[in-house]
């Protein structure tokens, strides 16, 4: 799937300005960005629900920019799932196949196979969406989008309405089903952890443009801008540059790459703790180093109290230089 210079402007939707993106066949790509950056608008354009002002959408090298949604052979899971409330889970999944006029025996076979694949139990299949749990509804929505064997699957914030336990569960299921079916997938999310956990590639959007594309690891560890660095997670960004490089750059070091009172790591500085927060699996400590505040993520058994002096050091190879022209 390829997007070429997509532009869009409308009163009721965020503006897009020359968005280009190439999604390799079979890949799972996340469109990640803050609210209002245009990511849902972009997916609606790809799905055919909105027409771009300029640019092209290509699927298997075929221009589908002006093809109506139902003829694009794309599947979509909406943010609110948009399950048909008067139909059973089976009825919802069969809908797209019935619309295509397939024989009922084939519909039955494909629907049951798809529901097996997403793990919806047989006794849940005749229930209407209102009588299914959030996770079960999610499975139905996924099955409904996949049963038509789409060339492209689009997921618009599919996990945003679930609690954290269910979100973890569904994250694994979506990825598993995507791998099994091999369908090229585009997911919209504002959650960087979700994007990094699920995606082969992430396209970070801001203010109607794609600011950076890369793997989760690359974007997290070696972003090209302070915006991407901050959007993907907690970041310590300090002025400075690597000796011999252009001046005016910034240095990024993630809180988990800093160590408090660590043994065998190069010494960085002594600072005063001003805050400690306990998160169960780890602690987040705010330390003032000179005139800079830094965040340090540490093990939960070491939780320095505010006011104490600590030695802060960075693990070797974890400091990344942000390019000077990167957005701050």
């Amino acid at each position: 799937m390829r997007l070429e210079e997509i532009s869009f402007r409308f009163d009721t939707a965020p503006t897009l300005a020359g968005v280009s993106l190439k999604v390799p066949a079979g890949a799972f790509v996340s469109i990640l960005g803050p609210s209002g950056c245009g990511k849902t608008t972009l997916v609606k354009i790809v799905a055919g629900y909105l027409k771009p002002l300029a640019g092209r959408v290509l699927l298997h090298d075929t221009d589908i920019t002006n093809v109506p949604p139902g003829k694009r052979n794309t599947g979509m899971v909406f943010q609110n799932l948009a399950l048909f409330p008067h139909l059973s889970a089976r009825g919802n999944v069969a809908f797209g196949l019935e619309a295509r006029g397939l024989p009922s025996s084939e519909i039955h076979q494909r629907v049951e196979a798809m529901l097996d694949q997403v793990g919806l139990k047989p006794d849940e299949r005749n229930r209407q969406p209102g009588n299914l749990s959030g996770g079960q509804q999610q499975r139905v929505a996924l099955a409904r989008a996949l049963v038509i064997q789409p060339s492209l699957l689009m997921l618009d914030e599919p996990l945003s309405n679930l609690d954290s336990h269910l979100r973890d569960q569904m994250r694994g299921l979506i990825r598993q089903v995507q791998r099994d079916t091999g369908v090229t997938t585009m997911m919209v999310t504002h959650d960087p952890e979700e994007a990094m956990a699920m995606s082969d590639l992430i396209a970070v959007m801001n203010q109607g443009t794609i600011v950076e594309v890369g793997t989760g690891r690359d974007l997290y560890q070696r972003p090209r801008s302070a915006f991407v660095a901050r959007f993907l997670g907690l970041a310590n960004i300090v002025d400075g540059s690597v000796i011999g490089h252009r001046p005016g750059s910034s240095l990024l070091v993630r809180p988990e790459c800093l160590v408090i009172n660590g043994e065998g790591v190069p010494f960085a500085g002594i600072g005063k703790v001003i805050n400690s927060e306990f998160f169960g699996a780890d602690v987040l400590v705010t330390v003032v180093l000179g005139n800079t505040q830094v965040l340090v993520r540490g093990r939960p058994n070491i939780m320095p109290q505010p006011g104490t002096e600590v030695r802060v050091s960075a693990m070797p190879g974890t400091i990344h230089e942000l390019p000077a022209d990167g957005e701050s």
């Binding site: 799905a47 055919g48 629900y49 109506p68 949604p69 139902g70 003829k71 794309t74 599947g75 979509m76 909406f78 609110n80 948009a82 048909f84 409330p85 809908f95 797209g96 619309a99 295509r100 409904r144 038509i148």
Partner: peptide, 15 residues
């Protein structure tokens, strides 16, 4: 009626 239902149905190929 949920405004997403019609686009969802159209996207699934319904006339």
């Amino acid at each position: 009626i949920d405004p997403h239902l019609v686009p969802a149905a159209r996207g699934l190929g319904a006339s």
